[in-house]
Amino acid sequence: MKFQLTQFLKLILLGAFSSFFFKLHLTGEIAKFINPKYILMSQLAGFLFILLFIIQLGRVWEINAQHHCSAGCNGDHDHSHSRFKKVFGYSVIILPLLTGYGIEPATLNSSIAGNKGLLLPQNEGMSQARQDAFNEVVSDREPLDENEPIPNNNYLSDSEYDRKMELLKEEQIEMSEDVFAVYIEEIQTNPQMYNGKKIKIKGFVYKENGLNSNQFIISRFLINHCVADARVVGMVSEYKDAALYTQDTWVELQGTIRTEEYNGVEIPVIQVEEVETISEPDDPYIFPILVKIV
């Protein structure tokens, strides 16, 4: 009968992992990391860790000491490793627990947006072929009205989706969180259809290279699965005092959509009439719209 320190360490780590997953759900922090639609999987992980914790409990005291390998052991695990490798291995495993408990999750900001690719059509350095490909992609897209809503929604039913898409035809466009991405895509695909319409939109200020000093992009991060696949969606906005609003400031603005030529591509631009600085919303991210397939 012998106390197995390594097994005890594993036991503690399994417990800590389990409590980490439950903490994420109980505090709601999970929404800072993954699309809430997928939380079921991570809840499952929390419960699986509890199960493994219980199983692991039986291994801490090995009854048969010289046979220090229990059921299922194939002799290919830790034993052959050197002490250093072992210590290193466990330090690596502890790392996410340390930073997970110790560092508050951040909301992605413009420094990441800048790394994620560009929103504006690029011209300089773009060959004819690429330009053609771009135009082809743009012209390929059908107007959204004819598209079926994408299967599997952020909890919008088919009819509600249709109703929301109807709202886009009104004079005043309200960019609410649930339809943010589809609205923007639609407006960018057919800018001339929305020329002159009023718009009200919330987001953070992102200044992409190549914008004038009176312009910024009003943006949100769109998350499909987890924060690692976030991408920026947004619209160019023009405002005389744009310079006053620094990167990452959250604002709500009202204005009129006008089409402008940018690098030979027609894009929608918001002529801002009113800006109000707001605090970061509780749900800073937006999620793709999907209609349930059942």
Binding site: K32, F33, I34, S42, A45, C226, V227, A228
Partner: peptide
């Protein structure tokens, strides 16, 4: 920011 992305990859992958 890095930590947030790092954890989100793990939270997504661990299950």
């Amino acid at each position: 920011q890095l930590n947030t992305i790092f954890l989100s990859i793990l939270i997504e992958a661990v299950p």
